[in-house]
Simulated scan of single mutants.
Amino acid sequence: MKQFYKSKSLPRLSFLFVLLFSVITVVNSCKKDDDEGYQDHLVQFEVKASAGGVIKTIVTQIGTSQNTMYNTTQTPLTSPWTSGEIFVNSSQAQLNLDANADMPNTDSELIINLWIDGNIVKTDKKVGKGVLTASIDYSFLEL
């Protein structure tokens, strides 16, 4: 046994084991750091106004792409309004929906919903008379 400890190959063997251990440790730690990647989601915006309410403006935003719609005779905004289903990659990060409507009564409601993959993930409800504004902001990124 004394010969093994006095052997000249012991430092080389020790260096080889340390190097092998380091490589295995680095490879295993990198596997844990891999992102799961971005996923596609089915997104839908929805705006509802109670009877007699008139939707004036709807603004949708996916990532940096914004779309503003105004209620005009050429492009009327009827209640309930939906955007239709849109495929959105979670790399877009931010979704926004804003709407305003002119409501006739004190108990009138303006409700906006954000649907993702068939479920309502966020909603905003405003009650009152006059011009009401509702807003939703949503991020795919976990904070």
Rank of each mutant, 00 (worst) to 15 (best):
V131F: 00
F17E: 11
S135F: 09
K6A: 11
F21N: 12
V88C: 08
K6I: 06
S14N: 10
N96E: 01
V127I: 10
D124S: 15
L42R: 11
S9A: 11
A134T: 04
C30L: 14
Q61V: 08
D102H: 07
Q39F: 14
P11A: 01
P76G: 06
T82R: 11
R12A: 12
E142N: 00
D35R: 10
D102F: 06
V43H: 04
E142I: 07
I62P: 09
T78S: 15
V47W: 04
K8G: 08
N67Q: 13
Q92P: 03
P11T: 08
G130H: 05
G37Q: 04
S22V: 13
F15C: 11
L97W: 03
V26G: 05
A101M: 08
L42F: 05
K56W: 01
S65T: 07
S83T: 03
K129E: 11
S50M: 04
Q66M: 14
N96F: 02
T82D: 07
V27P: 00
L42Y: 02
E36S: 15
F15M: 12
E36L: 08
T123C: 07
Y70Q: 15
K125V: 15
D137Q: 14
F4G: 00
A101N: 04
T75Y: 15
T25P: 02
I58M: 10
K31W: 05
P76F: 02
G84D: 00
Q92K: 13
V121F: 13
Y38D: 11
M69Y: 06
S50K: 11
I112N: 02
W81Q: 03
S90E: 02
S50I: 03
N105V: 15
I86E: 09
